[in-house]
Design a protein around this nucleic acid. Structure first.
Lengths: 150, 150
DNA sequence: TTACCTGCAAAGGGTTTGCAGAGTC
DNA sequence: GACTCTGCAAACCCTTTGCAGGTAA
């Protein structure tokens, strides 16, 4: 599935969600969805605000926060809280789940995917009686290059 | 190791750390360490502040934040950011490794331990050629009580 | 037309900072 | 005695809220 068909698919999902919930289909909401799905990495509300402002699309922070809640609720984005007090978001539709490993010496970040994390998720969900929506997993250590120079 | 010997051991660790870093051994810092190690669960800075105030130990929030940084730096506590914008802490010396699952509705935090995370760690370390020192893993979802009230 | 939604600005709440006085080394 | 640390309060920053005008249904 290419980028433009992803964009139109998520628009449909969002549209259907808004109808189902009895909300209104405002142009701002779809403009924000577009902006979110044109991001290629993690982003925060302020970045969205700046990006949209630079494109001369006038939208308020209040509306951005409001819309992020809707996108979260219908599962089109994931929210992270990586240490700092800034909420970080990430598009969630059709993107391969991945986790990160960080080198604490040089700051390098690599990605990997291990299916066993989903098995742990299922076990924990059952054991703790939670309905789990997402997870965040980081490994910290020293990468190959940094081990050699030690 | 019982509680009081843990208390005196962490005091030594902290003392040695302060010396090594050329900081000063103020009574406030040790009083805060004591308070931290008398907590039995996660806590935030405001809770420490209230507890110490109730014991008529006068300490400012600024000093609490300052000291938390030192305790983090020498590994005597761990800092978490469970969704909300409140930093939560946890004592780290001699306590069993565990991971967390957070209810995104009510903020409740539960703990569990699944050994498979260590297997993933070994696999990822080999595959990515990292020497891994630690990890952070959080599951997010809805707890049993919140599912019922939906 | 009727709510709901938006933009704006002010308020909230956790954390950080600036400064004067206190206390460690 | 020098310089860091503390306490206090104000400043900061991200997020939420209140309100008046706008707009989808």
């Amino acid at each position: 599935m290419n980028n433009s068909s992803i964009q139109s698919t998520v628009k449909e999902i969002f549209s259907e969600y808004i109808e189902r919930k009895g909300h209104r289909k405002t142009p701002e909401r779809f403009a924000i969805l577009d902006e979110v799905y044109s991001q290629n990495s993690h982003f925060d509300v302020e970045q969205l605000y700046i990006h949209m402002k630079n494109k001369n699309y006038r939208v308020s922070r209040a509306t951005l926060y409001n819309t992020m809640d809707l996108l979260l609720d219908c599962g089109l984005i994931i929210k992270h809280q990586f240490g700092k007090n800034i909420a970080q978001f990430e598009k969630a539709y059709l993107f391969k789940q991945h986790d990160h490993i960080i080198c604490t010496t040089c700051g390098r970040v690599d990605e990997y995917c291990d299916p066993r994390i989903h098995e742990i998720e299922k076990t924990v969900a059952g054991m703790m009686k939670y309905s789990i929506s997402h997870h965040s997993l980081y490994f910290y250590g020293t990468c190959e290059a940094c081990q050699k120079t030690k």
